[in-house]
Amino acid sequence: MSEIVSGFFQAVNLIVTLNPEVMQIAALSLFISLAATVIAATIAIPLGGLIHFHEFRGKRMLIVLIQTLYSVPTVVVGLVLYLLLSRSGPLGIFGLLFTPEGMIVGQTVLIIPILTGLVIASLGGIDRNISDTLISLGATSFQTIVQIVKEARLAILSAVVLGFGRAISEVGVAMMIGGNIRGATRVLTTAIALQTGIGDFPFSIALGLILLLIALVVVIIMNLITSGLSVETQQVLGGPRT
């Protein structure tokens, strides 16, 4: 018990004194997961829109498949990407294995299904009357799609925040593709796993606290978005509508 308590205080000390290694690991984590989220959103929003706005054979099946991939184990994504990115693999020439770029690719792949699925759900949540209204007001099909995506912006934004949450908290891809190299690819989750293994609890607790702090911020943002606290907040988060 005393070990946990003293570990906790040392951890707080590491954070408030802005310990360089802790800060470097936290910064890299944020950078990799934010980059993955931005890339995944850039792909998933148009992709989700494409699936939502078109009727085709097997659409239902495709959506079920996407939803299944929400819960794909991170180590499975890690394994597949490892095979693809390793020197002898088909994508080996890019030399992405054990690099932050490789980890960004991995986390992007990991969260694209959940983002795409939630984007489809968000667009589906817009009342059918809205699209009828837009069309009858003389919107082209492109104008209709843009407007409906804008209308679903808050739901889509919460999907993106959720995707970021999954990216920053996963271990499998970060460990297998990043390799947990100190100062290069070591992120919060892999560092916690390693430091705990070697018995450096204060360091682990410090990183864990930071991870929780990030989770807290994510939850707060989510709540701000979904409750739509005020018009102004919505406009800040959803972008001003002109």
Binding site: N129, I130, T133, S136, G138, Q147
Partner: peptide
């Protein structure tokens, strides 16, 4: 269609 306009039974307003 742009020479017409329709008001629906259940008015849908955008947010």
């Amino acid at each position: 269609r742009r020479r017409m306009a329709m008001v629906f039974q259940k008015p849908a307003v955008l947010n």
